[in-house]
Simulated scan of single mutants.
Amino acid sequence: MTFNPLQQRGIPLDRQVRNWRELAVTPIDPDHIDPYTRCRIITMNGIEVEAVMFSHHMARHCPDAEVKRQLAEVRYTEAQQQKAVNWLLPGVSSVLETTIAYEQVAVDLTAWVARMEPDPYLKQAYQFGVLEDFDHLYRYANLYEMIEHRKAEAIVDQLTEVMPGRPTKAHHRHPADNVRDPYDRSRTDPLSKLHALTIMSAEQQTMNFYMNVGPTYMEPIARELYQEIGLIEEEHVTHYESLVDPGETWWEQLVNHEYNECYLYHSFMEQESDPKVKAIWELHLNMELEHLRIACDLMRRHDGREPEEILAPELPNVLTFEPNKEYIRTLIAEQLDLTTLGAGYVREAHERFEAMQQRLNSDGGPPSERVIAQHQELFNREYRIESEGAHPVPELREQY
């Protein structure tokens, strides 16, 4: 069934503020939940954080006091939504368990978007990034067994493989080589705009998470690994945010944000297996329909355009969390040795890449390599989860 959020009525804004009892959501049970329910929660937390921060940035650039008041009213309910979503995560989960779930999100969300992306240049951007998040999952899984003596299998539940991707040490590039060419807002498929905003928001939340939780560990190797991967997440945010056309007006961006939230809440409501979580997705969708209506009115008044000029006439196919094992193995076989040069990709290390590698890795090697070495010392092996019968993964070329 098609769903056009522009033709739907949501909950009036003056009825959206929830009291403390309504905000006191019951967290998921990490031992009995579908891992993809946890992935959907983490994704929507990132989406809501982006919505709140974008609204703040827009308000800081807006001279119209009435518009600021409208943004503030919507933003407050967005902030309540973010609290309700993020508080679904259980307090019993450790930071590392949540970290592994964050990387499962990055792997399977980005892989699905890469599979569905209609623009070849944008598709390549997602294919490139997912091989790096895939390797981060592998590094954190080894750290998890070292520190907590537990296995990542209990978190990812065989839905996502845990094994090396593009080595994390090879992710450190000259900052200029992390900037991609943007899509053309006047010609790109509306689905491409949703993809770019979704992945940017998810990576941004991962970056924020690592920046804050990294120093909470006492173990030096854990502190150092979070520091290293946290810097790479900053590179990833640069990589993905540069895909968005900077010519989009504030009003256009606001409408895209609200439309994307409708798309994701609708998608997750359609596939959610947990009844209590599904009810939250449905509630938030009905709130976002009103937020979208308000954003569209603002665009008409201040931008002089109809939202139909930039939005899809109906929501695209449901964004789905599902295994992407063979797809990622194919990417590993074909693209493992890629790096970036300018706005494009090359297979050979170049001067700027080598200079950055030398500057960062010249004294003792990166934490991402040392965590594997220390794990092997402790257990006489590395930690992996590989599917039976899958085609083998090639060894990485020696340049890294």
Rank of each mutant, 00 (worst) to 15 (best):
D135P: 11
F128N: 13
W251I: 08
H171V: 00
D177G: 12
P118C: 01
L71F: 07
R166A: 14
E272R: 06
D189F: 00
E252A: 10
A152Q: 06
Q8G: 04
V162S: 03
Q16M: 07
E326T: 15
V95C: 00
R381H: 07
H266C: 01
H236T: 09
N212H: 13
P167E: 09
G365R: 01
P367W: 01
D181M: 14
I199T: 13
H391D: 09
M53H: 00
Q8D: 06
H195E: 00
R150K: 14
C296G: 04
L131H: 04
D184A: 12
G247S: 08
E117P: 01
Q358F: 05
P367M: 01
P275Y: 08
R352W: 10
D108W: 05
G342N: 04
L225R: 05
I280L: 13
R18T: 05
S362A: 14
Q335N: 15
H32G: 11
E219H: 02
V52Y: 06
T340R: 15
R300M: 11
V107H: 08
T77A: 01
W251C: 08
R185C: 10
M53V: 04
Q127I: 07
T168C: 14
N260L: 10
V371G: 01
R187T: 15
L197C: 02
R38D: 06
R21L: 12
Q124T: 12
F353R: 11
A202G: 09
S186E: 14
A141N: 07
T188Q: 06
Q80F: 02
Q124K: 13
H57T: 04
L315E: 12
V92W: 01
